[in-house]
Design a protein around this nucleic acid. Structure first.
Lengths: 188, 188
DNA sequence: CTAACTTTTCTTACATGTATAAAAACTCTC
DNA sequence: GAGAGTTTTTATACATGTAAGAAAAGTTAG
């Protein structure tokens, strides 16, 4: 986000900063367009399994992988649910998979939203955590927190204290996604 | 985030901008501290139900409500998993609930992370969507997308097109949370 | 009380996003 | 092809976060 400046872009394109603003409302819109372009060029449709539940997993994972590979995405990612027209096909697969598993269309849309919340949240949280770690002053904050834990008040956290860092370093997106999808498909 | 400027804060406190930087690494850290203070003052511990599964729901919902009531939170929310020491009690409740439901401690921590991803994602996505709607130029983008949908290629989305806006306006945090927790508790 | 040292504050400076309004380039009709 | 109208670009300006280093205030040892 910060690496790209309107001034630098303008001079590299042989123009002036304010000229860019005729084509783009603000810097964020430019980045959304970049993300859109990125998605259009890199999102390849995977082969989908026959079972609808697995189809949901594969489609969501594909989106997640594409986004996670792109660290500048976070600031843009706070966009809405439909990141770009190129991603619509994946959304379709997810909604359709949910419907095929027996959900009503309305519930399927809600289900897709939940999956999107989870996916976007995972990337945002994980990416910013990684950035903080690079700073490494702030990384020690967590150690502080866990060191001063009162085991009588917060026994589970105290118990997990030394394992917290490695545990949260693990990539558990798929597991959480599976759990969420399973839960969504349990008829309630 | 933008409403608070270091310069204005400094003059209101009767100081200079750079003096603030001795106490705070940067603006973001100041906001994290503000969030921390906000959490400490407003997060009241609710009465917890006996059943561990419901306890998870109640604790997560409490965090979610406190955060969702605080719109400037989004930029800060991309913090790590432990928002503040005042929230630790809630984290404890969630992890403990998961353990009581039969998960190992490791899986419980992962489960908490999944819940946090979902919660943070929900707030970030929903809040930014609301901000965009205020702009309302960008709100029409979605209508465009749905208007030009090819029903033969994306049948479900075409089918849901006119209901998409109201559907995504509904607050389904609780439903998604329940689904996620259910899924996490299904022994795999 | 003084002198060294540490913590805190101030001054100045720069790069950034972008508002505003004028200028230039382009397009299209007659 | 001339002139009106539209689109695109430029010049200028301002508020912002914050780096760098000087200055001041506070603290402590002798």
């Amino acid at each position: 986000m910060d690496r790209l400046t309107m001034r630098r872009l303008a001079t590299e394109v042989g123009s002036t900063p304010m000229a860019l603003y005729h084509h783009v409302r603000d810097k964020e819109e430019l980045l959304v367009l970049l993300l859109d372009d990125y998605a259009a060029r890199t999102l390849r449709r995977p082969e989908l399994p026959a079972h609808p539940r697995e189809r949901i997993i594969v489609a969501a994972t594909a989106i997640h992988e594409a986004l996670a590979a792109c660290p500048w995405i976070v600031e843009v990612l706070t966009a809405d649910d439909l990141l770009s027209t190129s991603a619509l096909w994946f959304v379709e697969q997810i909604v359709d998979g949910l419907v095929e598993c027996g959900l009503s269309l309305d519930r399927a849309v809600h289900g897709y939203r939940a999956i999107w919340y989870y996916t976007a949240g995972e990337i945002v949280v994980r990416t910013t955590a990684a950035r903080r770690r690079a700073d490494d002053d702030r990384a020690t904050y967590r150690e502080h927190v866990f060191a001063d834990l009162d085991p009588s008040e917060l026994p589970r956290l105290a118990q997990a204290a030394d394992r917290w860092a490695p545990l949260t370093a693990e990539d558990t997106y798929r597991d959480g996604l599976r759990a969420l999808v399973d839960g969504l498909l349990v008829s309630r």
